[in-house]
Design a binder for these strands. Structure first.
Length: 442
DNA sequence: TCTGGGGTCCTAGGACCC
DNA sequence: TCTGGGGTCCTAGGACCC
């Protein structure tokens, strides 16, 4: 906690719905709901007019329609949201170099780096009002709620206190007075499951939370969250405003109107999703080692399966092959409502750099040998030897697309660098070590 | 036909290494 | 022969956020 109120949290009010009302004047003053409009959709954002009817974020669109049938139901225009968000973030960065976006509609700003003459409450209040006015200007009239306090934790709580279009500056020294009467659910990270555990322990307010020992909290909610809650209950929070946080994972998922039962269709969907993920990775100059699939069954039980490659990839075929293989091991009888593919373990360098550096030992081949039963110079033949260990730099393998060298292997995955006619050295692809399409050249 | 999509962080257990 | 602990990596699942 700082001696001054120098952390600002800004939150655009009902952001997606507000952009829609800005761009379509006939929607102004009317209930607007942005979210999934299909049978299994949920509400992303409800305008304040729609909230008056009890429509809330994360509510099923079905229920929202029941509560507010006359609202406009829109599926969202993310390009418009992104560009509006970018304009707001630019205003904030104009004020301080230390801006940490949390999402399209939220960010922290470190006012200690804003070049102010001092950090008195009156000074930061004036700056906050100026920022709100600037945001309104550059967005064409969108309102923002702002909180300013001595920490991220309190700034975020403050911005929530006077929504919409509000400003709350918490005077240093008054943090605990403000915090103690509030319900524990105001603490970011305290959701329904944690509220229930605390409730069973007789804890409802922050004041009650403050009376629980750290050991007891760790017993109740686990080590990390227990320690965090112990400190937050005392308004202790020293987390820095961190700009440019690195992406940790990229994923694509979809929920289908009716449950999927056809394995071939599932396989095709996962392939498309894998291609999309790889495309996004490439567009960001990223590659990743761990491919994860997510499957939500008809009864909402959610399964995930993952596999980690020896080296990062952004190759669509590699991600897709691995994703399909992971899917094959799951029992999907009964139907699947959601499928998804993600890549994590990201590196900010791409595959090409890696095999370019490691390929000097090998001379380019003039042409790829035929895949089927093609004798090599010594007269050996492709032979399926079944799943076993693969030795990097030693084994020549026959796989789906031709012949290649084992370039990496471990933890059930083998990576092959293929020989190709067109672009030696060939592409790198990874397979499960027990992939039936792999065989060893002996 | 209750319950999206894109993320982050944490936990717990097992493998593996020293 | 029996018995260690610590650290790291990986996998699966869950809570949470907007």
């Amino acid at each position: 906690m700082r001696p001054h109120a120098s952390v600002l949290h800004l939150d655009l009010d009902a952001f997606f719905a507000a952009v829609e009302q800005r761009d379509k004047p006939s929607l102004r003053g009317k209930p607007v709901v942005v979210g999934g409009t299909g049978g299994r959709g949920v509400v992303s954002t409800a305008s304040y007019e729609a909230r008056a009817y009890g429509v809330r974020s994360a509510m099923s669109t079905r229920e929202a329609r029941a509560r507010c049938p006359h609202a406009a139901y829109l599926s969202g225009r993310f390009e418009a949201y992104r560009s509006t968000s970018a304009a707001v973030m630019a205003v904030l960065r104009d004020c301080s170099p230390l801006v940490e976006p949390l999402s399209l509609d939220e960010a922290f700003v470190d006012l200690a780096e804003a070049g102010l003459p001092d950090l008195e409450v009156s000074t930061v209040t004036a700056l906050a009002e100026e920022l709100r006015a600037r945001v309104r200007e550059v967005t064409g009239g969108l309102t923002a709620s702002v909180g300013v306090a001595s920490s991220k934790f309190l700034a975020k709580i403050a911005s929530d206190l006077r929504k919409p279009d509000g400003l709350v500056v918490i005077e240093p020294g008054t943090e605990l007075d403000l915090l103690r009467p509030l319900h524990v659910s105001v603490i970011p990270g305290v959701g329904p499951a944690t509220v229930e555990r605390l409730r069973r322990a007789g804890v409802h307010t922050v004041a009650e939370l403050e009376r629980v020992s750290q050991e007891e909290l760790v017993r109740l909610v686990g080590k990390a969250q227990g320690q965090a809650l112990f400190h937050l209950a005392r308004a202790e929070d020293d987390r820095a405003v961190v700009p440019d946080r690195e992406t940790k994972s990229v994923s694509v998922e979809g929920t289908y109107e009716t449950d999927l039962t056809d394995r071939q269709q599932m396989s095709a969907i996962v392939t498309r999703q894998a291609n999309e993920v790889a495309k996004r990775l490439r567009a960001s100059g990223l590659s990743g080692r761990t491919v994860t699939i997510k499957v939500r069954l008809y009864d909402f039980t959610t399964l995930s399966r993952s596999s980690t490659l020896p080296a990062p990839t952004d190759d669509p075929a590699t991600v897709a092959r691995l994703a399909r293989t992971l899917l094959e091991d799951l029992d999907t009888s009964g139907g699947v409502r959601l499928l998804g593919v993600g890549v994590s373990g990201l590196a900010d360098w791409i595959q090409e750099d890696l095999f370019a550096a490691g390929s000097e030992a090998e001379a380019p081949e003039e042409s790829a040998p035929d895949v089927e039963d093609e004798p090599d110079q010594a007269g050996a033949r492709w032979r399926d030897t079944g799943p076993q260990s693969w030795a990097p730099g030693m084994d020549v393998v026959h796989a789906e697309h031709g012949r290649g060298w084992v370039w990496g292997s471990g933890r059930g995955v083998v990576t092959v660098r293929f020989e190709t006619a067109e672009t030696p050295p060939g592409p790198v692809r990874s397979f499960r070590a027990d992939d039936p399409s792999l065989s060893r050249w002996q």
